[in-house]
Design a protein around this nucleic acid. Structure first.
Length: 945
RNA sequence: GGGCAGUUAGCUCAGCUGGUAGAGCGCCCCGUUUACACCGGGAUGGUCAUAGGUUCGAAUCCUAUACUGCCCACCA
């Protein structure tokens, strides 16, 4: 018996959810015949057809957003439908580590709130903490998935950084590398000089600053004429490879194709055209420096694509230390570009090239975190070449091996596939899959005299061992303590303390404040000038941040130094600059470092030499000891040469240095389907999967890559169908944003209207790929619909006592002729039509239409017409005043009608179940069942096969 | 700049490979209380963005235009 009163979702949803979860019904191993969970082996042998859906993994660090949740509703409806059709269904949920965004959230929401800095941590520590952070949050996300009713096999919830997944993903990288699909190439990146790292576009902000626009004359070769360009960055002019004008600009039409000379040099460059050049900005002529401007880079790429016989190149003139390099004239070369700029301008003026200077407001790109001015420059990155996999992948979608819903997205897909360029797969992050690339020594990037980016390697001799006997006595901690009171904080810089006669590192802290430490130096001058110390850096809180070096002893004609390095030092540069100085001063020297236990001494490799580091050794002060030796000369990295580089998952041995970068998150999520199925050894049964449900906005980035990776790895398609959902908009139909205040609070609306009502709002009248909004009006309406189902069920089930078993038989065969009453025939015909119609809708993935039709038919046909008409056969006639029964319907009519109506209700419960599982299961529990029915509605036979 | 969608009743949206425009909400009128006021019946309301074209016939196919959204090599 269903309780009287309106449907109260709160009363039932929790109970139903527990029922589903406890019974193992979400697992493919659940056998509806045995009513128990069988072994995986038995399941595989089971004659039921397999059906599989791998869930797109949302971010692990947070709760799934409303778009993810709507996706789950779609996935769940499909899965339940398939179970009702007798399939063994695997829905595999998971969570994504979400590379850049995951790391960003952790740094902002956790570290910064604790006043900590990522660069104070060791990579391994950071990774470990972040992993824990993710695992803590993953539970919350899983609960949301369960709450929306997602019938996924939660025992197989998988994280993208699960060791099994990592194995598969990295193995793919290695294979691709071996097949020459992965290579290193050069491209323009946003360089944050403060963080000494590449940053993503969306980690940068634009900021308006005062600047100058310089008008510079570029003489035309073999002519007295000249072309004047306007630029805010004259210092990059030696990197110009063209001057561009707008092809529509009549003033410059005759210049296109001519050659101009870069002032102060004898470099000649062509005049090209680009629609990107604004005629009314500056002079209408733009100098093109592709290596140091994203816009210019674009113009170069476009020009080269159109003019394959007259391509232009790029010239690097600024390196990662912001020093002028490459084809910069000797006069300015090797200097920081900010200093050199003044002199360049002076020379331009003197030689008559500088026409004028104009004050302007300019938008500059700033790194969001460090606030440093971004320097666009060329840097070598790992790339994936799609050539060998893209054609077949494209075919899969076009010949129907993979169907896209909506179909119109095929055009979008094809356009993407036809315009694929090689994919840069490395990211300057810590969180993610570290590249399985190992170098036989330290690697550095350098810009040569031709302006080309070169990668150099210095391989190490891996056999030398530490001589701990000698070193112990040279550590001088008591001296270091005298030094570290000097106040230096933040970012480093070099300066010379003339009074002391030494080079010191000066620190600028990361918020951009310049720290004047002269006072502190004065105070501790006595310490500084101590003959024992040559170089030092210490922190204001008393810790030695950089190091102190003492030249204290000669043994066997070898000079030894003790170097103290605090474990919290934050940059390669701190050590390298000073070590550089030492090396140049004492070229054939063996150095000796003592560092606290946790020091990332490995960082010293960069500009220095191989470090032999024995963690177990200790000197008398409890510090482990490092020995440094001068290393072989730099040589150019030869890819493919196993003496330089090895691509494999595990370290090839001591001394091999792993690439610092991690893989783009798409590189791993692109392998999600087979990586997960492999992990659980289910490829034989569930691959290829049946459906992928995803937002249409990641068709290109994700879906296409999954297809390509899976083709590479398995030679097959990852899934047969792709259902692309639209975006969920805010309560006012606009795009959701916090500032508009139209965010949808999932917890609130679920509490108020119930899970089923929210699910219906996702489905109803929605079509694949279309955006839709969830408004209170809709939710109210669907709550009303649930109530209607509830009340109709109460009414119909109230007549359960009259059921006639013989009628049930003919109903299940849809044998209309055997029914006596017109109403019964009408009901059965109606149910039959609805069954066919809805099944067709679902099979075509028209879930919006299916729910729309169900809503209409159930409410306005079944309830408003058929139930109303049935009352004549079900109700006693009563006297209006006394309430006494005047007459009753004929017993056999009442039996037939009540049986038919209950049959119809059960049919509707099945049809509705994929969309609104909670209420339908609740009612199902009270419905009279026969042998084809299962206590779990999602395992009851679908009406139409 | 390019690609892909969208533009249908006051609002939110359907309309499944061309055949006399649909739903929900809102508004208006009427009714009912032995499933349901989170109810029933009815009414009002759109030259389907604009302009051309194909066709016996176009919301639907084609072309152009205008707006809106999404994507476009370090956001998943």
């Amino acid at each position: 018996m269903l309780p009287a009163g309106p449907y109260e979702h709160k009363q039932f949803e929790k109970e139903i959810l527990d029922f589903w979860l406890a019974g193992g019904y979400y697992r493919p191993e659940y056998s509806p015949i045995a009513d128990s969970v069988i072994s995986t082996e038995e399941m595989k042998k089971d004659s039921r057809l397999p059906w599989c859906l791998i869930c797109p993994p949302p971010n692990a660090y947070g709760r799934p957003h409303i778009g993810n949740i709507s996706g789950y509703a779609y996935m769940d409806s499909m899965a339940r439908y398939q179970r009702m059709n007798g399939k063994k269904v695997l829905v595999l949920p998971g969570k994504d580590h979400a590379g850049l965004e995951g790391e960003g959230v952790f740094v902002r929401e956790v570290l910064e709130k604790q006043g900590r800095n990522k660069f104070d941590m060791k990579r391994e520590e950071f990774y470990q903490e972040m992993m824990e952070f993710n695992f803590q949050n993953m539970e919350k996300g899983l609960q949301d998935e369960k709450n929306i009713g997602l019938s996924a096999d939660f025992s197989r919830n998988t994280f993208t950084l699960d060791p099994d997944i990592v194995d598969t993903v990295l193995e793919t990288f290695v294979q691709m590398y071996k097949k020459d699909m992965i290579y290193k190439g050069v491209r323009i990146v946003n360089w944050d000089p403060k963080a000494r790292s590449v940053v993503a576009d969306n980690q940068c902000v634009r900021e308006e600053r005062d600047g100058s626009l310089y008008y510079i004359k570029y003489p035309i070769v073999s002519s007295d004429e000249s072309l004047t360009v306007a630029t805010t960055r004259p210092e990059t002019m030696f990197g110009d490879t063209a001057v561009a004008v707008n092809p529509k600009d009549k003033r410059f039409a005759s210049f296109i194709g001519k050659t101009v000379r870069i002032p102060l040099t004898d470099i000649e460059i062509p005049v090209i055209s680009s629609f990107r050049v604004l005629e009314d900005f500056g002079t209408g002529a733009l100098k093109i420096t592709p290596a140091h401007s994203q816009d210019d880079y674009q113009i170069m790429m476009e020009w080269n694509k159109e003019n394959t016989d007259k391509t232009i190149g790029y010239q690097n003139v600024i390196d990662k230390r912001l020093t002028l390099v490459g084809k910069t004239p000797e006069k300015y070369k090797g200097r920081k570009y900010k200093e050199a700029k003044e002199e360049i301008l002076k020379d331009l003026t003197e030689q008559g090239f500088l026409v004028k200077e104009e004050k302007v407001k300019q938008n500059v790109l700033i790194a969001e975190r460090t606030k440093a001015l971004i320097e666009p420059l060329m840097s070598s990155q790992w790339y994936l070449k799609y050539d060998s996999i893209k054609e077949e992948s494209k075919k899969m979608v076009n010949d129907g091996r993979i169907n896209l819903f909506p179909e119109s997205m095929v055009d979008k897909f094809n356009f993407w596939m036809d315009n694929l360029r090689d994919w840069a797969i490395s990211r300057s992050l810590w969180w993610g899959y570290r590249l399985p690339v190992w170098y036989a020594g330290e690697v550095k990037e350098e810009i040569d005299d031709n302006g080309e980016v070169r990668e150099l390697i210095r391989t190490s001799n891996l056999t030398r061992k530490l001589n701990s006997e000698v070193t112990v006595e040279h550590a001088r901690v008591e001296d270091a303590e005298a030094i570290h009171r000097i106040n230096v904080d933040g970012w480093h810089d070099n300066f010379v303390d003339e009074a002391a006669g030494v080079t010191l590192e000066r620190i600028q802290n990361e918020f951009g404040k310049r720290y004047d430490n002269s006072e502190a130096i004065e105070k501790h001058k006595a310490d500084i000038v101590s003959p024992n110390y040559k170089y030092l850096v210490a922190k204001s809180n008393g810790e030695v941040i950089g190091w102190a070096i003492t030249e204290n002893l000669n043994i066997d004609d070898t000079k030894w130094f003790d170097v103290y390095v605090d474990r919290n030092w934050r940059s390669k540069g701190i050590g390298s600059t000073l070590l550089d100085a030492m090396i140049s001063e004492l070229p054939e020297t063996t150095f000796h470092l003592a560092v606290p236990e946790k020091s990332p001494a490995v960082k010293f490799y960069e500009n220095y030499g191989f470090v032999e580091y024995d963690r177990n050794s200790e000197n008398e002060y409890g510090l482990p000891i490092i020995q440094m030796k001068k290393l072989p000369e730099w040589e150019e990295v030869e890819y493919g040469n196993e003496n330089h580089i090895k691509v494999q998952q595990d370290s090839p041995g001591e001394g091999w240095i792993q690439d610092e970068d991690v893989l783009d998150t798409w590189f791993s999520s692109g392998q999600w389907v087979y990586a997960t199925l492999k992990k659980y050894d289910l490829m034989d049964t569930f691959f290829p999967s049946d459906v992928m449900v995803s937002g249409f906005d990641i068709l290109e980035n994700w879906i296409s890559r999954m297809i390509m990776f899976t083709y590479f790895h398995e030679g097959k398609e990852p899934f047969k169908n792709v259902y692309l959902t639209g975006l969920v908009q805010g309560t006012d139909g606009q795009k959701m944003s916090k500032s508009k205040g139209n965010m949808i609070d999932m917890d609130k609306i679920v509490a108020e209207y119930g899970t089923d009502a929210v699910r219906l709002a996702y489905f109803y009248q929605n079509s694949a790929g279309a955006s839709y909004s969830i408004t209170p009006e809709k939710l109210k309406n669907f709550r009303g619909f649930l109530n209607k189902i509830w009340n109709a069920s109460k009414f119909v089930l109230n007549n359960e006592q009259y059921i006639d078993q013989s009628v049930i038989l003919s109903l299940s065969k849809y044998d209309i002729d055997s029914l006596k009453l017109d109403l019964s025939k009408k009901v059965l015909t109606h149910i039959n039509e609805v069954n066919i119609h809805i099944t067709e809708n679902i099979e075509k993935y028209q879930l919006g239409l299916a729910t729309f039709n169900l809503y209409q038919e159930f409410w306005h046909t079944y309830c408003d017409i058929l139930i109303e008409e049935s009352k004549e056969y079900l109700w006693d006639k009563k006297d209006k005043e006394t309430g006494a029964i005047i007459s009753s319907p004929k017993a056999e009519d009442r039996a037939e009608v009540s049986t038919v109506m209950i049959f119809a209700l059960k049919s509707y419960l099945k049809l509705l179940h994929p969309f609104i599982p909670f209420i339908t299961q609740t009612i199902w529990n009270e419905v009279p069942k026969d042998e084809t029915d299962h206590k779990v509605l999602m395992y009851s036979q679908w009406n139409v096969k």
